[in-house]
């Protein structure tokens, strides 16, 4: 009988081995990507513009929503999809209607994403929009229903062909306290 009790005890330990060595509170750096694309209508005016409203909570795992401690961004990118042989003039990206980037140059150069991190000469950051982005991220820490409006505009040198779009992407992270109940 004693042997059986000992066995049950040991197997109980097996089933729980390690439970005390998991950190109670650990922060997971969670990816928070935000992006939007402006589809350019073929044959229409060479000017293009568009906006998209994003609910930040939809960009991450729902279980992290009430556990966010910090938020930050680490890159901004502009890129295009579709084949074209023209130039983009006077391109602008906005966060909640606050300008965050100016961009312009040959269409083909934007088929490779132009980013702050790559120190691209084809994009210029604007502190007005950067401050707004920081404000949105800080708001998200306490308000899971935070939404952000990303928008963009610009002009092509000549009328668009089919299947063209200009995209704007923000790469951000939030720290989620995975140990929080």
């Amino acid at each position: 009988m004693k042997t059986k009790i000992l066995l049950v005890f040991l197997l109980g330990i097996l089933a729980t081995t390690g439970s005390t060595c998991i950190n109670d509170g650990f922060l997971v750096a969670v990816n928070l990507p935000m992006d939007m694309c402006v589809a350019i209508n073929a044959g229409s005016s060479p000017a293009f513009s568009g906006a998209e409203t994003l609910r930040l909570a939809d960009q991450i795992d729902a279980s992290y929503l009430d556990k966010i401690k910090n938020a930050r961004f680490y890159d901004l990118k502009v890129y295009v999809t579709g084949s074209h042989t023209d130039t983009i003039y006077n391109g602008k990206c906005y966060v909640n209607q606050k300008k965050i980037l100016d961009f312009g140059g040959a269409w083909v150069d934007f088929t490779t994403p132009q980013s702050l991190l790559s120190n691209s000469k084809l994009i210029t950051r604007d502190t007005t929009g950067l401050k707004e982005l920081v404000s949105v991220l800080n708001q998200f820490k306490t308000q899971p229903n935070t939404v952000v409006v990303l928008s963009g505009e610009g002009v092509l040198g000549k009328r668009a062909t089919t299947g063209l779009s200009v995209c704007f992407e923000i790469l951000a992270q939030v720290d989620a306290d995975a140990g929080a109940k």
């Binding site: 390690g18 950190n23 997971v28 750096a29 910090n70």
Partner: peptide, 13 residues
């Protein structure tokens, strides 16, 4: 202004 971070460790042993 650009900041990046790695996750914390999970197992402390």
């Amino acid at each position: 202004g650009l900041e990046y971070k790695g996750s914390d460790g999970i197992v402390n042993t």
